[in-house]
Structures are given as structure tokens and as C-alpha cells.
Design a binder for these strands. Structure first.
Lengths: 155, 155
DNA sequence: TCATCTTTGACTAATATTGACTATTATTAT
DNA sequence: ATAATAATAGTCAATATTAGTCAAAGATGA
């Protein structure tokens, strides 16, 4: 069975709320208490699993009544979101982040399963197989952005 | 039945699980302990006996709660057609020839129109955008071959 | 004997967890 | 009003927990 680490469990918990709601708003310390982890682990979960590449927007506020708010967005439906995503990718993207983008497109029904998998193959580290990691990441960025722009015109 | 080395035994063990289940998920160190071998031997077994040519997909994650997951997939009937194409492509292909390959896959109903277009975006010269033409051609070859290998099975 | 396959372990890479310290915002006291 | 304090969230680096790579050494078999 998968999901042995607590970060995955927290991720699933938050996503289960987002399955029914437009957004979720939490108090960091409450979630940390709920899962018996230090508060900064919540930041870790958000930073690794609720990025724009994953199709989420996050905002927060400190101080009394502070909160963290996570919102699910569609990457290509909204031209602004797509522009932001392309800008964030810039000229380099890791395999992990690129997977997140493709996964989001699949979840948004922009790509079907087979299309998503074809793209994942094309951007996989072992496919690109270049010695230089930064070249690998920049190639991947160009491929992903090329595909995003193709999808934009298509829709 | 002679000469049962430990790699063969581990292979059989994993395959016996896969006989009843769609996939098997292990912790590398646990299996290594179980058979009294060093952890990297598990990688050796996987690399030599659970290849895509044999119909297995492998994925893994490091860090806390890490795992190795092996999945049995169904290989398609006309895999030898793909093999032939892969051989012809070799380690380098021009944009012109690659377009012809994708076109013929489309005409043979291996790919639909949308899939073909996504692939063309990924292998286009302007997408790859590398100064060195021979690098460009070898990247294109790896991407197409990766996709052809993916088409060997249904997931 | 030679080539190939297996076994081993040192080193590397990726991911997760923790906590000390910092930054921001709200509330309370003067 | 302003300053002090409380109540949040953010950052970052150290450590822990996995898996991956690679090459050397050992075993096997033609």
C-alpha cells in the first residue's frame, strides 16, 4: 500500500475537501495538530503538492485570524492562469513539476489518459537522456510550453 | 531447474505476487533483508527481469515512505511493427523523416489526429531548439522511440 | 580461458521531517 | 495614536529515510 508518509496523507486530506468545495481554508497549526506534525510541514506539503503546476493557487495571511487558502484552478481554461503557468515554467522545469502539469491537465479533462502518458514519455528524464541537467530541464520546458500553447489554440 | 541463483529466486517471488495482483509494491530494503542481499541487488533484478519488453512497468519514490512498484501490463499484438520502426529510426532522425513516421502511424490508426499533433509539437525543430543539429536529431529519435515503446502496451 | 552474469558496497540523489529563527498582522495597554 | 504583546504563517538548514548508479570482484558456463 502506498501513502506511507504523512505528507501524502495530508495531501489527500486537503484534496478530499477540495473535491467538494471551490477552495479550502485552513489554520496551519490546526492541521499540524490534527496530523501530529510540526507546522512547517504544512508548508512543505503545500510547496510540493499544491503549486501552480499542480493546478492550485495558494494565498495566506499571518497574524490573528491568519489562514492558508488553497484554490483549485484549471490551467488552460483561464488564459491568465495559463500565462502565469508558462511564466513560472520559464525556460526550465524539473521532471517532477512537469509531471504535475501534465497530471493537472489530465484532471482538468484537457488531456485524456493516453495523451497524458504520451507526453510524460516525451519529457521523461530517461527519454531526453542528456548529461547536462540544466539542458534537460530547458528542453522539457520547451516541450511543455509548446504543448500548452498548442492546447490553448485548440480550445 | 538447476542453478537457482538468488536473483532468480527474487524474480520468482515477485512474479508469484504478480500472478494474483495487478501490481506489487515493495520497500527495497525489506525485500533485500528477506533474501539476505544488499539493497542494490533488487535494482539489478528489476533491471534485468522486469523490463518493458517483458511487459513490466516500474516506478519508485525515494525518501520517507519510499517504494518500488512493479506493474504487469498487456503488450499489444503488433509490437513487432513497432520494433521494426524503432530499428529503422536508430539513434537519429530528421524532422522530415520523423513527420513521415508520425504520419504513417496516423494512417495506420496507431495514433489519432490529436495524438499525432501533440507528438509533432514535441519533436518540432522550433520546440527542441538546440543549436547542434545532430543533438536535435538524436533527441527527436529518443522521443519517438520512447513513444513507440510506450505504444507497446496498454495501461 | 574468456565472456557473461551475479553479487557487493561505496557513493549519489531524491524526498520527508523537524525545529530554530524570522516576518507579518491583530489585539491590547498606555 | 503608539508601543508592546500575542498570534499567526514563512524560511531555511540540518537530519532522516528512502531508492539509484556504477564499477569492482566473484561465479558460472561455453
Amino acid at each position: 500500500m502506498q501513502s506511507q508518509n504523512i505528507s501524502d496523507i495530508i495531501e489527500k486530506y486537503l484534496k478530499s475537501i477540495l473535491a467538494d468545495a471551490e477552495h479550502v481554508e485552513i489554520r496551519r497549526s490546526e492541521i499540524a495538530d490534527l496530523f501530529n506534525v510540526v507546522p512547517s510541514q504544512i508548508n512543505y506539503v503545500i510547496k510540493t503538492r499544491f503549486t501552480i503546476q499542480n493546478g492550485y493557487l495558494v494565498e495566506s495571511k499571518r497574524g490573528g485570524g491568519g489562514y492558508i487558502r488553497i484554490e483549485k484552478v484549471n490551467l488552460v481554461d483561464d488564459a491568465d492562469v495559463l500565462d502565469t503557468l508558462i511564466q513560472v515554467i520559464g525556460d526550465s522545469i524539473t521532471q517532477r513539476d512537469a509531471y504535475a502539469v501534465v497530471q493537472s491537465l489530465y484532471e482538468d479533462d484537457v488531456l485524456n489518459r493516453r495523451e497524458a502518458q504520451l507526453i510524460l514519455v516525451a519529457i521523461d528524464r530517461s527519454t531526453l537522456d542528456v548529461a547536462d541537467r540544466s539542458l534537460e530541464n530547458s528542453l522539457r520546458a520547451r516541450i511543455i510550453i509548446g504543448i500548452l500553447n498548442h492546447l490553448r489554440y485548440e480550445s
